[in-house]
Design a protein around this nucleic acid. Structure first.
Ligand code: SF4
Ligand code: SF4
Lengths: 156, 156
DNA sequence: TTAATTTAGGACTGTTCCAGTACTCAATAA
DNA sequence: TTATTGAGTACTGGAACAGTCCTAAATTAA
């Protein structure tokens, strides 16, 4: 059971690539080469990322994409949501009363806790932490985030 | 982007139904009526749950299913894995070097953290906590998990 | 102005996998 | 024996995914 779709996975790769050189403006073809992904697929994903507000686009000659915000301020959850849509564990977590069982389903109220925990897991990791440079921090066993961390126990 | 498949969702519902009366042995048809799910689908799911070690089956007349262990010792992750297979965020999290990009993928090493966090979220919730009876604890804002088996006593 | 570049926005297609059903075989109790 | 119940497998329709392609619009350079 793989949670992320291939495209969402690739989307994170592309966004991470942009995060390595935040100032540069790269076009779709260049990013495709650097990430070794199909050009057409990269173009499609960048459109979705732009639509989701993760990257900003400039059209025309010498145009391209760059991150809409600093990499530290973009979470993996945002990138994934821009491609695969809102993240939720069950159908009722996203589309509300779309599921016909919503009126009498006994497990429905309990899913919220799991839903929040999963969402937190994806929202806690930023693009900056996905870059290769950040790998050093993990090798050195530095604390992953100096700010609010250790969010294992859900405490709403 | 819905994480759980419908069948996994239904599997948790069925397992939770069994958890409400752990001593009883119920057959597939009865569980289907109680959960208001299609009989054939329930039968299919119970087979998968039995295969995954979540429930034990007794064949023959007056046969049926019951939980393989106390509800407090069965996590949601187990139930989901019994139906949808091993849980992982990316392809490389489960099938290892199946993805052709595994040798040069820059994001691969970072997914582990997210993968663990998601797995923990699903492993932390037990079937006992999914039962309707446990809903009282949340209404009273009691600590979600006082201990492995301490939840039975009535809360003041 | 003209031409080249680059993204925006759909439309399209083949494939895979999900969800549900049906059938036969094996085991058990009355 | 015989009715009951799960085990195992096979099958099908349909939805969603993954990938490609085309035309229009915006921007820059000549
Ligand atoms: S209402 Fe129940 S069956 Fe429907 S999506 Fe929510 S948990 Fe699943
Ligand atoms: S190796 Fe990279 S592209 Fe392949 S599944 Fe892992 S993260 Fe995704």
């Amino acid at each position: 059971m793989i949670i992320l779709s291939k495209l969402a996975d690739y989307g994170v790769i592309i966004a991470t690539q942009l995060a390595t050189q935040p100032e540069r403006q790269a076009n779709a073809a260049t990013l495709a080469e650097e990430t070794r992904l199909p050009r057409t697929t990269v173009a499609k994903l960048l459109k979705a990322l732009a639509h989701g507000g993760v990257v900003t686009a400039s059209r025309g000659a010498s145009g391209g994409y760059r991150l809409a915000r600093p990499a530290e301020a973009i979470s993996i959850a945002e990138v994934v949501a821009a491609i695969d849509g809102a993240i939720g564990v069950t159908q009722c977590s996203i589309h509300g009363p779309d599921c016909t069982r919503t009126t009498f389903c006994s497990t429905k109220p309990h899913w919220k806790r799991i839903n929040d925990a999963v969402g937190t897991a994806l929202a806690a990791m930023t693009l900056a932490e996905m870059t290769p440079a950040n790998l050093f921090a993990q090798w050195l066993k530095l604390p992953p985030k100096p700010g609010p961390t250790e969010g294992q126990g859900a405490a709403p």
